[in-house]
């Protein structure tokens, strides 16, 4: 394993940010999921050695980074903060990182990193004038310049426009396929889903789930799903659906009905006939939670 957290706890005064987290990360992309305050950033900071665990151990490529900092030649991190050095150009910033990391042919490595994130055209502009998305790409380039085996990315897509996001997602996937261990924290779940199926979900500083998103979803088949139904006469349709098998709840909001069901397939089968029987016109039927968001929400609810 490239990175291991062993019984990791971290607290700040009375606040527990991490509690007994044990998890391993191997080559490929792993999504680190959780709501705000779940402990994702703290986990990445403790894993990277930026913060000292209150309890437990961290192993990066077999060593504790606080004790053996030479491991940082193969580790890189993109912190969450938007911060960069505003007085430096992108090239100077990446060159600084290359030289600090002891990269041999620093100039070539800087050019390669700039090319990878498609910032060659703006390489000599000051970072102060960069958009948020460009800063993110500069930070990613500064992390890639040392060709790390372990890449820790804390919300790396923040501020990037859709095209830039797609580019970065492709880049992270490619790095994972090349054998780099990439840990990506994000609250934009659909983006994580585009990067990887492998996820670590955190809630309140604890691990909520680890594994393939498909396995997580199948593990919650007994959980109710939400289906959003838009109809011209929602009250009539809602009362008809309330007695349908598998439906555990119905909520009306304007002309929308939020149907809670443990059997969405059966609901899909019954819905047209129920609408026909009541003389209701269906305007829209869509799963309200048919994404990683639903997995995540259920995990959060299950653990609270």
């Amino acid at each position: 394993m490239t990175a291991e957290a062993i019984g990791l706890s971290k607290w700040f005064g009375q606040k527990v940010a991490l509690s007994g987290v044990s998890v391993s990360f191997g080559p490929g992309v792993t999504g680190l999921l959780g709501p705000n305050g779940a402990g994702k950033t703290t986990l990445l900071r403790v894993l990277s050695g930026l913060q000292v665990p209150s309890q437990g151990e961290v192993r990066l490529l077999g060593v504790d980074p606080r004790r053996d900092r030479s491991v940082y030649s193969t580790v890189a991190m993109v912190p969450e903060d938007e911060a960069v050095y505003p007085d430096l150009s992108a090239r100077e910033f990446i060159r600084l990182r290359a030289r600090l990391a002891g990269v041999e042919d620093a100039e070539q490595a800087v050019s390669d990193a700039l090319e990878t994130v498609e910032l060659q055209g703006s390489a000599d502009r000051k970072l102060a004038g960069f958009s948020k998305g460009m800063r993110q790409r500069a930070k990613v380039a500064s992390a890639l310049v040392s060709q790390p085996r372990l890449l820790l990315l804390d919300e790396p897509l923040n501020g990037a426009d859709p095209v830039q996001r797609a580019q970065l997602i492709r880049l992270f996937r490619a790095l994972g396929e090349q054998g780099c261990t990439v840990i990506v924290s994000s609250h934009v779940l659909s983006e994580v889903e585009r990067m990887t199926r492998q996820v670590v979900a955190m809630v309140d500083g604890r691990l909520a789930a680890v594994g393939d998103i498909q396995l997580l979803r199948s593990a919650m088949t007994d959980k109710p799903r939400h289906v959003r139904v838009v109809a011209d006469r929602p009250r009539e349709l809602a009362s008809a659906l309330m007695h349908a098998p598998g439906v555990t709840g119905v909520r009306i909001d304007g002309n929308e009905i939020d149907v809670n069901t443990v059997d969405p397939i059966d609901l899909a089968r019954r819905l047209p006939s129920a609408a026909r029987a009541e003389g209701v016109r269906l305007l829209e039927v869509a799963p309200a939670d048919e994404s990683m968001e639903s997995v995540f929400r259920y995990l959060v609810e299950a653990s609270t």
Binding site: L50, R69, Y72, R97, L100, G102
Partner: peptide, 10 residues
């Protein structure tokens, strides 16, 4: 917020 850039170096 730039300390990580210099701290994480070998």
């Amino acid at each position: 917020g730039t300390l990580p850039f210099i701290f994480i170096s070998p």
